[in-house]
Design a protein around this nucleic acid. Structure first.
Lengths: 117, 117
DNA sequence: TCCATACCCGAATAATTTTTCGGTACTTGC
DNA sequence: GCAAGTACCGAAAAATTATTCGGGTATGGA
């Protein structure tokens, strides 16, 4: 119940497939953080998204790794150092993330008036 | 608990704002159904998305109406006839829907292999 | 040694979303 | 009359997701 999505992805329709990969609360934000291609350590991602519970970021990073959107490297050092970086597949979603980012910026005032405060 | 989203939209970040408008299970599909601009009656939408529980379509259509993505017309006839049509604001999301649709088509085989059957 | 940090994970709980079920109301066709 | 279609909604249940809590391991600094 607590640490993995029940249905990995929705194969019934291409639109829902794409949605199901990124609709979890923080996945689109994680992709946005990793967009430059530079690797990030888990603690760094936690700090960049302080609103998110660390546990859920771990879980979503794990799912995104399984889905192939990001890749994890564990450096065999002590203390162990982990890094996540965006994959080719993940990069191919960036235009969509960008379009949503821009849409949100362009229409923010509408919803700020409607639901703000 | 059963008939309205707790948080209408997420104003904290433009990306999450856009996501929060369309991430409910069937909203992106509803936008896709209405994309042509032609009005659709509720029962028609139910028939086009038979996987969705009729109740949840009603709820999501209501939320999308409040958010301004679709508009509802009730014709004062007997029996009453209702119609939903996409608004300008909803239309401005179609490029994003399209991009997700195309991405899903382009990468379907990857996930079909991985999670299919 | 004690404390902070980093990394990871299980389990319980809370919150939210989706679904099912049932009910109201009206009209048309049989 | 009565089944079927349309439209709508409340309430409860089921399913899913997000969060909190605590534990475990390991290092480095004071």
């Amino acid at each position: 119940m607590a640490y993995e999505k029940k249905i990995p992805v929705d194969l019934d329709c291409p639109l829902r497939l794409t949605m199901s990969l990124i609709e979890s609360k923080w996945k689109s934000c994680i992709l946005d953080e990793l967009r430059s291609g530079a690797p990030m350590r888990p603690s760094e991602i936690h700090r960049c998204l302080p609103e998110a519970a660390p546990r859920v970021l771990d879980i979503q990073l794990k799912e995104m790794t399984e889905d192939g959107l990001v890749a994890k490297t564990i450096h065999p050092e002590l203390p162990p150092r982990s890094e996540y970086r965006i994959t080719e597949l993940g990069l191919s979603l960036i235009p969509i993330i960008d379009a949503m980012l821009k849409w949100g910026e362009d229409h923010f005032d509408i919803f700020e008036k409607k639901y703000g405060r």
